[in-house]
Every structure is written in structure tokens, then in C-alpha cells.
Design a protein around this nucleic acid. Structure first.
Lengths: 207, 207
DNA sequence: TTCATTTTTTACCAATTCGCATAAAAAGAT
DNA sequence: ATCTTTTTATGCGAATTGGTAAAAAATGAA
């Protein structure tokens, strides 16, 4: 089933490209400080077109947040598969995250940390949907780390230890995001990440 | 030298009380989403009075941020002096911070995390003064942890190890702030904090 | 060509934003 | 009592906000 040729005036924009542009604006400014005019300028569209395609400002923001979370998940999962063993894989993931946070990946050129952590936080007390979205993002990171650790250290850690270690790694990662947004350099952050992983999940030959 | 009796109409507000009220508004909403009308309502003053006393919105915000950092510093330092040894003192400090982040101290009733970390971040890319303020806050925490560790573990750690461990603790603390703002409970956060300290600066009888 | 459909564009709206100018009020000083 | 000083209160204003109505444009279908 191909899509039938579309009726009406054709769109002058690509939805994916536009959403990426919208993402950049929110990434830099956060939710509250971003205006639809800024988004309109960044995308080359005007407000009514944006509204027709993506809904309200809040819709766009939540859309972009979940888009970001998905991309980040894929990107980090892939980075974690280039090595073996819990400790090396976790290091690889944190280092990849730092590259993302400091604008070294094709997701963004700007060193603005984690889009979700940096911008959702601030809005969280005023809007329960944002608060929920933040909770979901955090839980997803916890689960991701936990499943990697569980998989790589079969039996040698209790489920309790696994979950705690996973949360420690996520805590570290969020702290790194903040420092990235504060302007800290990638290399400093990566050293911090590696030494942190060594304390949380020390290297062992077994896993 | 006493202050001479003041000329002119007396102020109807106490500067300290008002600044605390201003702090609550920024704490909840962040900088961008806070309006002067909201501040006016929270303080019972009107905008011209606020402006005359505290300057612009940005002035007020930076004022409140440094006020917060000072108070936090005093509060945590005191909490860290109720015990002895690096590991117990660090735990006491993190636990006190969590109480603050979750609205269990007299600084605020609201569980909005760390005012500086939560709200400065978002604004950081758009304003170099905010970015600088964030850097200062982070560095201050790093230094605080480092000096405690240095003092409690005389000689048994290299300066490099001390600074790295201090930064790990600050990273964890910032991660905890985010989770507090996301609505996580104090007890869960405190368990995470304690187990993290045990990994970063394990308990030893010597210090 | 004419019509139906979809998007773009222009223009507008009501509400809010920060800041300030000006006037009224409340105190001490003379 | 009158003047000076300081603060409070009223109200304006220019700009920006998110959102939408209505018209114009661009395409396929008939």
C-alpha cells in the first residue's frame, strides 16, 4: 500500500527536519523562554503552519522530548555494544553521553547537556505532565543501566545491588549533564565519568 | 554608630522576609517563567516598590541565588559537624541536602530540589552571567567536599584522589536534586546517597 | 476548465510582559 | 505648620506572548 498522491497544496517542509530544528531551540532556551516566533524563525515556517502540523507549544515540546529520549536511547545502546564487560561498556556509554552533551554528535553542535534533564526539571513543579515526563526519562535511564549490569554480571550481584548501582550511574550522568551545560570540557567530564564507573562497577575479569 | 533615624516614609516590608518570598517564587517557576506580577503578589508589594528595592528581575534572581548558596553552605557545613570521620560526615551532609531538596527544612516547604542547580541550568546558554553563576555554585560544592575529605583523611589520599572524589559527590548530589524535583521521596534519595558515599569514600576506622 | 483539498500567508486578537513616569502618602527636619 | 525625603500606589506604554480567523496559493481530481 503506497500512500496515495496527496491532495492539496504540498508542504514546503520535511517533518523530521523541522522537528530537529524545533529541538535545537528548546534545547538552548528551555520551554518557558522559547517563543513560537523563535521556533518559526528557526524552522522557516510561520506560526499557523507550525500549529497545524505539530499542535501547541506544549505539544511540540513534549513531542521533541520523547523524540530526544528515543534517539538518545538508540545512540547510547549502540555505543555500549562496541565493547564487552560491565565496566568497559558502562564507560563507553557514559563517554558517548558526554559527547552528546557537549555537542560532539550529529544530534546537536551545542554543549547544552541533556535536553530532557536540563529543561524538563525547571518546568516540573508547574505542570504535572512535565513532571511525569521527567520521571519517565529518569526511570528509563535507571532501567537501561540496570539491564546492562544484570546482563553482564550474571549472578554475581543481587537484584538490589544492581538497581542501586544503576541509579548511581544515572545520578552521575545527570550531574555530568549539568556540568556540560555549565561549560565544562568533554575531557574533564570523561575523566570524571571513568573514575566514577570504576567506583560503582569496578572492573573484573569475570564480567 | 547607630543608623540615624530614617527620613521619609518608612518601608512596609522587611527586606529579608521579602527576599525569602521572592526566593520561593523563583524556586518553583525558574527564572523565565516567573513574572514580576507573581513576585509582587507573593510579597504583597507592587512592582515599582520591588524595582526600587531590589532592581530588575535579573538582579532579584541573582540576588536570591547567592543568598540561597550562602544559606545552603552554612546549613550543610553545620550538618557535617555533628559527626566525625569522612564517611559519616559526608553522609550527614548529603542527607541534610536531601532534607533541603525535599522541603523538610525551614528554607522551604516545597520539594523543588536545589534552587541553583534546578533553575540556573536552563538559563545558562542564553546568559553568560547565569552561566558564570552556575559555574561558581558548582565549584563551591566541589571545594566544600574536597576540603572536608582533605581534612578528614590526612595524607591517606592524594590531592588528585581528593578532588575527584569531591566531584563525584557533587555529581551525585546534583543528580539527587533532579530526582527530588521529579518527586522522588526523601527516604529513597537518602538510601541512594548513603550507598553512594560508601562507594566513593568507604568507611574506615582511621578517619 | 472547474472544483475540492490542503497548506501557506497575512492579519488580528486578547492577555501578559517588564519597566517607568507620575502622583499620593508617610515620616523626620526646620 | 511647612519643607524635604523616602516609599507606596496608580496607571500607562511599547513590546511580546500563544493562538486563530480568514484569505490566498498550490496541488490533484473530475
Amino acid at each position: 500500500m503506497k500512500t496515495e498522491t496527496r491532495r492539496g497544496r504540498p508542504r514546503k517542509f520535511d517533518e523530521d527536519v523541522t522537528l530537529d530544528q524545533v529541538m535545537q531551540v528548546f534545547w538552548r532556551n528551555g520551554y518557558a523562554a522559547t517563543s513560537l516566533d523563535q521556533i518559526a524563525e528557526a524552522t522557516g515556517l510561520n506560526r499557523p503552519s507550525l500549529y497545524a502540523a505539530f499542535g501547541s507549544k506544549k505539544d511540540m515540546y513534549l513531542n521533541v522530548i520523547s523524540r530526544f529520549a528515543d534517539r538518545m536511547h538508540v545512540y547510547l545502546a549502540e555505543a555500549g555494544q562496541q565493547t564487552a564487560g560491565a565496566n568497559p561498556r558502562l564507560k563507553a556509554i557514559l563517554i558517548a553521553a558526554i559527547d552528546l552533551y557537549t555537542g560532539q554528535t550529529d544530534l546537536t553542535d551545542a554543549p547544552y547537556g541533556c535536553l530532557a534533564i536540563s529543561t524538563l526539571q525547571t518546568e516540573s513543579p508547574r505542570d504535572s505532565e512535565f513532571k511525569e515526563a521527567l520521571t519517565v526519562v529518569i526511570a528509563r535511564m535507571d532501567k537501561g543501566f540496570a539491564s546492562l549490569i544484570r546482563h553482564e554480571t550474571k549472578g554475581s550481584m543481587t537484584e538490589q545491588e544492581i538497581c542501586t548501582a544503576a541509579q548511581h550511574l544515572a545520578l552521575i550522568l545527570h550531574g555530568l549533564s549539568i556540568r556540560a551545560r555549565a561549560g565544562e570540557t568533554p575531557n574533564v567530564l570523561k575523566r570524571l565519568a571513568e573514575s566514577a564507573v570504576d567506583k560503582i562497577i569496578p572492573f573484573s575479569n569475570g564480567n
